[in-house]
Design a protein around this nucleic acid. Structure first.
Length: 591
RNA sequence: GGGGACGUAGCUCAAUUGGUUAGAGUACCGGACUGUCGAUCCGGUGGUUGCGGGUUCGAGUCCCGUCGUCCUCGCCA
């Protein structure tokens, strides 16, 4: 070992000992007669002192040290002189009085300093990721990530889960997200697909009798990125045999409580609350509601039917909905212009035709350009329904149910942030259950699976498959943390006949089903047990547990929004020879 | 594919309504300093304002295009 101690280790109890530290020069302060160097490694920072007793030679080398030089220092651990301890450092009571100094490696002047307070722009951080990852904040996150994965593995091991790896090179399935494809050299013109999730393999493992499977699984989806979406991400994937939805939910409840306690020192009572999909859409307009604050969606369609206001009345009479939210005390926060901006945003992003609004005046009356279109008793009804108080801002959308959901969900989310309706560190976990089996695809004029085609309907809803697919509910459950889908799973179909019926509804005929999932259908015929599972979005969990607002900060080497890696410049061109071997011709050459 | 924000010194930012030689902090270089810890003090280097066009007497500022980063809609079973 080149060191005896890390930079986060020494305390007053070590005073008098000799220690050798290695690390990066975080900062240096040259006072001529005495020099200070803060030495950093991932364990912390220790102040190293080069005084007269260090010797002229050592002092001279110390004077040449610059940011990010890698050095090894030996010296005596000493208590700092009275009044010079630094409470900001864990090692702030002591310092290392250097007697030996070796520069292990120099550094060119870094484009930004890992020890600096301000964070550089993200493109720079990504290009020099090795410098960015030296920042204590990043190290904290990656260490939390490690501890989380470790705790998860321990937890599942205690519950008899077996970790089994599944292939990265699989076959493409047209359902779901766009696949990342890998060309086959041996079979020219054929492609592997990187897994979107190990879904089919884990089901096969249940058929194979492994009873409880878990995997930290890398998954790939070639879709456009978001703050909480990367093309390459990690799932904590699991599957269980002889279980019902409650069993899977119960296991995850236990995991959530364990991790919150172990990683955050926080008590989360279980069982976690549950809400049906229908209730979530009605009360919050979304299947992953942020329950850290209220501001629920309120329906006023019945009131709209009596209104003079044509926009409302027309919508209500036409079978659409009029719903709104009460932004408590926000009337003063949003000027006429501010509300116009909200309207423009909702029009652009969600296709609403307009935004109706009222400000509640001191007298309790509703003020708005559209107020004249409402008889006084109706205004009173609206005020009462929304629990309006002076200073409140009431906003309404009159449109189809899906559009009112999207627009009001977005408004509610935005108000939650802008009006600071929840404490910064707060965390709320819950389940949304009883998802519909199918969503009708208007463009393709066909049913699509809400989760995936292997999801089992609730037993009591199985007859609806034939009569009313829209009403058929799945044995599906999503874990929601702070308004983010943190995981989702289902009980699977283990019966061949039922599976065929669902394929039929999805427009997958027998031949196509055999072509794509023949191996699974075969497996279902060989004594497939009832089974179900869930996949947790591990990157998102880290993000939520660490109070971050984007997934890139939870991943050591993430991609940009255009799915490139600024450090390695991936993706890049390949040699013509490589393409020839694969039998691939490029249509439009890369720039 | 659509909408939006941003791009100025190595870095973080400023620059009035289009108007003189584009500034500050920090980093970097040199000097001073024996207890600092975001050290301090003195001096200095550092700029094709992302790139390309255009409008104008004059463009960091306005317009068009393009590249990059981010946010977002579509998309993400």
């Amino acid at each position: 070992m080149l060191r005896t101690t890390t930079c986060g280790q020494l305390r007053t109890e070590h005073v008098g000992q000799t220690a050798t530290l290695c690390g990066w020069v975080d900062s240096y302060r040259d006072h001529s007669g005495v020099l200070f160097v803060d030495l950093r490694d991932r364990y912390g920072k220790t102040q190293v002192v080069f005084g007269p007793e260090s010797g002229a030679d050592v002092q001279e080398v110390a004077r040449s040290l610059r940011s990010e030089y890698v050095i090894s220092v030996t010296g005596a651990v000493a208590a700092r002189p009275m009044g010079t301890s630094n409470p900001k450092l864990a090692t702030g009571e002591i310092e290392l009085r250097a007697t030996r100094l070796e520069v292990l490696n120099k550094s060119v002047t870094p484009p930004f300093q890992p020890g600096s307070i301000d964070t550089p722009n993200e493109d720079l951080r990504l290009k020099y990721r090795y410098l960015d990852l030296r920042r204590p904040r990043m190290q904290q996150t990656l260490l939390l990530r490690h501890r989380m994965i470790k705790a998860m593995r321990d937890y599942f091991d205690e519950h008899d889960f077996v970790e089994i790896e599944t292939p990265m090179l699989g076959r493409s399935t047209p359902e779901g997200a766009r696949d990342y494809l890998v060309p086959s050299r041996v079979h020219k013109g054929s492609f592997y697909a990187l897994p979107q999730s190990p879904q089919l393999y884990k089901q096969i493992l249940m058929v194979a009798g492994y009873d409880r499977y878990v995997q930290v699984a890398r998954c790939f989806r070639d879709e456009d990125l978001r703050a909480d979406r990367q093309p390459e991400f990690t799932q904590l994937d699991l599957e269980m045999t002889f279980v019902e939805a409650d069993d899977v939910i119960g296991i995850i409840d236990g995991l959530v409580a364990r991790l919150a306690k172990q990683l955050l020192g926080r008590d989360i009572p279980t069982p976690l609350p549950r809400m049906t999909y229908d209730e979530a859409m009605e009360r919050f307009g979304h299947d992953a509601p942020d329950l850290r604050f209220g501001m629920e969606l309120i329906d006023v369609t019945d009131i709209a039917r009596e209104a003079e206001f044509r926009v409302w009345r027309g919508a209500a009479d036409g079978g659409q909905r009029v719903r709104g939210i009460n932004a408590k005390g926000a009337a003063a926060n949003y000027s006429r212009k501010g509300i116009d901006d909200l309207t423009a945003w909702l029009t652009q992003d969600f296709g609403v035709k307009g935004l109706s609004w009222f400000k509640v005046e001191e007298s309790g009356t509703l003020a708005s350009p559209i107020a004249k279109n409402f008889a006084a008793p109706l205004l009173a009804k609206i005020a009462q329904r929304l629990n309006a108080e002076p200073g409140d801002l009431l906003l309404f959308v009159a449109d189809t149910f899906p559009i009112t959901c999207k627009a009001l969900y977005a408004l509610r989310k935005r108000f939650g942030e802008e009006l600071k309706l929840y404490a910064p560190g707060s965390m709320h976990c819950s389940w949304v259950v009883e998802f519909p089996m199918f969503a009708y695809n208007e463009e393709e004029k066909c049913w699509a699976a809400m989760h995936h085609p292997f999801t089992a309907p609730r037993p009591q809803d199985a007859p609806l498959l034939a009569s009313d697919p829209a009403a058929c509910r799945a044995q599906a459950y999503d874990l929601v943390i702070n308004g983010l889908e943190a995981g989702g799973g289902t009980i699977r179909i283990h019966d061949q006949t039922l599976q065929q019926q669902v394929f039929g509804l999805l427009g997958i005929d027998a031949e196509a089903a055999r072509e794509r999932f023949g191996f699974l259908l075969d497996a279902l015929e060989f004594g497939a047990p009832p089974h179900g599972g869930i996949a947790l979005g591990l990157d998102r969990w880290v993000m939520l547990f660490d109070g971050l607002d984007n997934i890139r900060d939870c991943i050591a080497f993430p991609k940009t929004q255009k799915a490139t890696d600024l450090m390695t410049s991936a993706p890049g061109a390949v040699e013509a020879k490589q393409l020839r071997e694969l039998g691939i011709k490029i249509d439009s050459p890369a720039k």
